[in-house]
């Protein structure tokens, strides 16, 4: 298990290096001089050159890559071309919206998906199964911006249980959680639908395994066999999906952030791209890549915890 973890850590490090190179090169290839962009068309060549050397843009490719990476390692992500403030400051405020939102949505998705997936599998072919399969089909199909607007109409405008948008900050955690509830639910619904379906089919596969019959022959009830033997064996595909969903939720919430006026990473990266604020794009993308790779690493470790057979695999 130790060797397994070390190997996974090594692969995590290598993935990060590879990702940083790709991101750096892609941003390099994009035409346009950031210094010129910052100073505007009317700036003198001298002013542009001065800024270039100040930003380190006149150095060689390798030197600039090192400058960028070593800066990030020290927590210095550079300064936004557009706003002239450190990227770290811009990101900090946003991460504390996007990360809790993603976790909240993931929590809701799991809490919704597990029981209905399990019920559908246990009562395969029954009306409950049909209901779950139909409902989840609908959940996947509904466009989330439309669903978001419906939710706002009902729960924010009609009943006024939640505010229709905005984020009050974390000074009062209860208010913050309340503000994130509707968007998290809207984000969670399609994810929960997918997860419930995966859970159902993984469980059905496991239920037909020989060891389930063994469990029944030992005297386990149908329910007992499901809880004690089927669930853990069905977790591998479910964990895979959860890992993918977290990565998606972290940065893929642009539309939902727009609908609910949330100051998250998604809307920030969207704005940065439209303003060609490349240093912000570069840094935030790197940050997201890091999050995704970290989640993949955690999922891998969880795999091995769930299934002892995976511990010895390279």
């Amino acid at each position: 298990m130790l060797i397994f973890t070390l190997k996974r850590l090594l692969s995590l490090g290598l993935s990060l290096i590879a990702a940083s190179v790709v991101i750096f090169v892609v941003v390099e290839i994009i035409p346009g001089d950031p210094a010129r962009l910052m100073l505007g068309i009317n700036a003198t060549q001298d002013a542009v050159d001065a800024l270039r050397s100040q930003m380190g843009l006149d150095q060689g490719l390798l030197a600039r890559y090192w400058l960028w990476v070593s800066g990030m390692l020290q927590g210095d992500f550079g300064i936004s071309y557009t706003y002239r403030v450190p990227v770290v400051e811009m990101v900090q405020g946003r991460v504390w919206v996007s990360l809790p939102l993603a976790l909240y949505a993931l929590l809701l998705s799991t809490v919704i998906a597990f029981p209905i997936g399990i019920i559908a599998a246990a009562k395969r072919g029954s009306w409950a199964d049909w209901l779950v399969m139909g409902g989840t089909q609908l959940g996947v199909a509904i466009p989330n911006f439309w669903f978001a607007m419906i939710m706002v109409n009902i729960f924010a405008l009609k009943y006024q249980w939640f505010s229709p948008g905005g984020f009050p900050g974390w000074d009062d955690p209860a208010l913050a959680v309340k503000a994130l509830t509707l968007p998290a639910f809207v984000l969670a619904l399609p994810q929960a639908s997918i997860l419930a379906r995966v859970m159902r089919s993984a469980l059905l596969d496991t239920l037909s395994e020989d060891f389930m019959r063994t469990a029944r022959a030992k005297g386990r009830t149908a329910k007992g066999a499901m809880v004690h033997h089927a669930l853990r064996n069905a977790m591998i595909p479910v964990l895979t999906i959860i890992g993918l969903q977290f990565s998606f939720l972290l940065a893929g919430a642009i539309i939902i952030e727009k609908v609910f006026f949330l100051p998250g990473l998604g809307s920030m990266i969207f704005t940065a791209i439209t303003q060609r604020d490349l240093i912000v794009v570069e840094s935030v993308v790197m940050l997201l890549v890091f999050a995704v790779i970290l989640v993949t690493f955690l999922v891998d470790i969880t795999y091995a915890l769930v299934d002892p057979r995976l511990r010895r695999r390279p």
Binding site: D210, F211, R213, A215, H229, R232, N233
Partner: peptide, 15 residues
């Protein structure tokens, strides 16, 4: 008690 044909799959692999 019951013993089955396929010992390779009759046991729960994760316990």
């Amino acid at each position: 008690g019951m013993v089955f044909q396929e010992p390779m799959t009759a046991l729960n692999p994760v316990q």
